[in-house]
Design a protein around this nucleic acid. Sequence first.
DNA 1: TCAATAATGTGTTATTATGACGCAATGTAC
DNA 2: GTACATTGCGTCATAATAACACATTATTGA
Lengths: 251, 251
Amino acid sequence: MLKDIVDNNENYQPGLSIDCVIFGFHDNQLKVLLIKVERANKWSLPGGFIPVDQDIDTAAITVLSSRTGVDGVFLRQFATFGKVNRNHQHFDKKILEYLQIEEEKGKWLLRRFVTIGYYALVDFSKILPNPSGRHEIVEWIDHKEVPELILDHREILDKALATLRIELNLMPIGYNLLPEKFTIPELQKLYETILDKKLDRRNFLRKITNIGILTKLDEKKSNVAHKAPNLYSFDKEKYDEVLKNGLNQGW
Amino acid sequence: MLKDIVDNNENYQPGLSIDCVIFGFHDNQLKVLLIKVERANKWSLPGGFIPVDQDIDTAAITVLSSRTGVDGVFLRQFATFGKVNRNHQHFDKKILEYLQIEEEKGKWLLRRFVTIGYYALVDFSKILPNPSGRHEIVEWIDHKEVPELILDHREILDKALATLRIELNLMPIGYNLLPEKFTIPELQKLYETILDKKLDRRNFLRKITNIGILTKLDEKKSNVAHKAPNLYSFDKEKYDEVLKNGLNQGW
DNA sequence: TCAATAATGTGTTATTATGACGCAATGTAC
DNA sequence: GTACATTGCGTCATAATAACACATTATTGA
């Protein structure tokens, strides 16, 4: 994989990469899709390089769909990271030898890489984490229990979450993170999890329904140890309209 | 200039550049600092390349201060642009000949460049537009009268303004665009110009003073053909606090 | 069977923020 | 001194928000 890219490095944008923060929601937890290669002892964000004949957005879609198997989901660029020493000492000669990469070609990999951060919101239940090779582990990890990450990936993850928190006030988001049918309490949990803050049930209901993007279904959730909550779905048309025009006007 | 960079291209991040959208406010107009090189017939955003031994943010500061002579101003990365054909056919062999750049070295310049967009807010009155060479024109241009720009610079400019409009709801901004002492009507004009929308005088006053970042000075503006408006300044301490915590809480 | 439990659904009230105005005050120009 | 343009301050109706009360419903277990 990596060796193929380095061997044909003239086909890739030099010194530039993409990293994706892929968010999912499950068990009332905000999950992040992380990757670990066998020989490394740290986890990392799924990422990739940019073919010279591809838009950066297209390359990001490729990264996302290769790991999750889905496309057409919410994917947004949020920041670009380029500290001088951000990938300093990440690859050294020993690793290049291990990967059977010639020294001359390896130079391509040893320079400072600038990385473009994208974050994705995906429906957890539709994703099958997909290792790109035998020596790779792909796993959903609760964002509160993310272990030490390589390079500046922790900073990238934090920035993605901070961006998501701000965007929560500017647009609706549940459509991408929840299954087709869901309950208001589930939606509220999603908001609470992202914001890391308790919200009042009754005020949340009023505010979320006032947006006008929900359709109340004639169906209740089953198998719950208490009063069965009603199921809802998003009115995609109105949802997209609000997405386009934004939520809060401000001035 | 450009020849120097190309001749020493191993000192610069390949295929990556920075473009700055520098906003100023004057005569009730939102101005953008644009550049025109003599031989070209289109204007462009001030930009530059990224030394391999510099953080991208540092490189952006360098671009900004080289054109405006100021530093320590508001500068923020807002997006990265990387369509495959964004700088297709921008430099061709004829131009490289004109610039006396060898064909071999010129290849560095002919590839697809990804550019990182930064926007800056500066105090118009403190800036002296600074051409970096004899053959360059640097000028403030009303954002409503921006002529055709090179490459995708129009898209970059539009995105910067869209970002600024959103951020106007999330943070205070006048500090960077106005002189130290200013009147409420001036501040309101700034908001109206950025948002391209009329605001009610009385409601604006109430809202802006409620934020708690203004200090009313014991001084009035002179030389006005009507009732003299009071002068205000920003309470920098409270201003920075609001900048840090954000304006609207939303959820 | 039926009360206890743990949720959900709906409503109320006080407070605050917003939008749309009215009117007096002030400095300049003629 | 009066007309003019613009500022400063205030009012009122309406909408949005925060805090809270109570009834409803499905399950569980004595």
